[in-house]
């Protein structure tokens, strides 16, 4: 059985070569991702320094501080309403962004998937163009559209539809518009991939079996493209939750989201451990969302083919 022994050796060699070849990437990932993450984790259990930074003294204050604040006079713990409001706004705006991008993205993806192959490539390219533009520039572009003297208000006033400008900028609506615009491609692409695989002949089968348009959509199309919906939703929800630039530019600093709140702790707040614990919390939420995705995708895969 020298053959199989030789094969075994070859296999061992292939495995070893594989590790060698991926070593640079593994090294980079360890140093650039796991390393800083570990630093953040450690910082979240330290004491804040007076002018920023940390003092190397173990403390769980930063984690407690996510939900509670110590009243400086009575020294009692109180629920940190301001923090909760920021968390709630972040989750609410992210969910709404996901919903809006789905509502806009699904018809878009359907439209693209039902074009002839050549036109399809063009439409996909157009959808991804914003990706090649700097996020800050895109956000300021939205700012230009919705501000009081901006394009939208000017046109509406010139048309005589409104007498005074609508205040959109620096509201939650502005943040929503901005995030929906920025993350739309992340919803469209996985939806397109799912719809592209969808067998359009099933639509006829549905109509043939007495389903109306709505029933065909709800009972046939949506369940089958569900993996794409879940993927798109995760891809939009996760970065929305940690969004920093968009709420900063369009929300005007008052409408804070978790991302801005974290930045605040590392800046003016001079509470690095709290910033670190908030970052870890954000990461945990994201991991939870990914877990949902993996489970949904696993179920989706079972009836694939």
């Amino acid at each position: 059985m020298s053959m199989s022994a030789g094969e075994e050796a070859a296999k061992r060699r292939r495995v070893r070569d594989g590790w060698l070849l991926s070593a640079p990437a593994l090294l980079l990932l360890t140093l650039a991702a796991a390393g800083p993450l570990l630093v953040v984790l450690v910082y979240s259990f330290l004491t804040p320094g007076q002018y920023g930074g940390v003092v190397w003294e173990f403390s769980t204050d930063a984690w407690v501080g996510i939900l509670f604040t110590r009243d400086i006079f009575t020294e009692t713990m109180q629920l940190a309403d301001a923090h909760l409001a920021i968390f709630w706004r972040s989750v609410r705006l992210s969910l709404l962004t996901t919903l809006i991008t789905f509502a806009v993205g699904f018809p878009t993806a359907w439209f693209i998937a039902t074009r002839p192959p050549k036109a399809r490539a063009l439409w996909l390219f157009l959808i991804t163009i914003p990706f090649w533009t700097n996020l800050l520039i895109r956000t300021f572009a939205i700012n230009e559209v919705i501000r009081n003297e901006g394009i939208l208000n000017s046109v509406l006033m010139a048309a005589g539809i409104i007498a005074t400008p609508i205040q959109i900028l620096y509201t939650d609506t502005a943040v929503l518009i901005g995030m929906a615009y920025v993350y739309l491609p992340l919803m469209v692409l996985p939806l397109f991939a799912a719809i592209d695989r969808f067998d359009m002949r099933l639509l006829e089968a549905g109509y043939d079996l007495y389903a109306n348009r709505w029933q065909v959509l709800r009972r046939i199309v949506l369940p089958i493209v569900k993996p794409g919906i879940v993927a798109g939703s995760i891809l939009v929800f996760v970065p929305s939750l940690g969004a920093y630039v968009t709420p900063r530019v369009l929300g005007g600093g008052k409408q804070m989201m978790i991302g801005n709140f974290i930045e605040l702790q590392f800046g003016q707040g001079r509470n690095w451990p709290l910033g670190a614990s908030l970052s870890m919390l954000l990461l945990l939420i994201v991991l939870a969302a990914l877990l949902v995705y993996v489970r949904a995708a696993g179920k989706g895969g079972a009836h694939g083919q």
Binding site: D199, E204, A205, G206, D208, P223
Partner: peptide, 28 residues
């Protein structure tokens, strides 16, 4: 088609992949 008391057996069968055999049969 959904208002015609006529049903089709498709060349590709066009069975619903996300449903069981019984769910396919009961769909109409």
């Amino acid at each position: 088609p959904n208002r015609r008391p006529v049903n089709t057996v498709f060349q590709s069968y066009a069975l619903f992949p996300h449903l069981t055999v019984a769910q396919n049969v009961s769909f109409g």
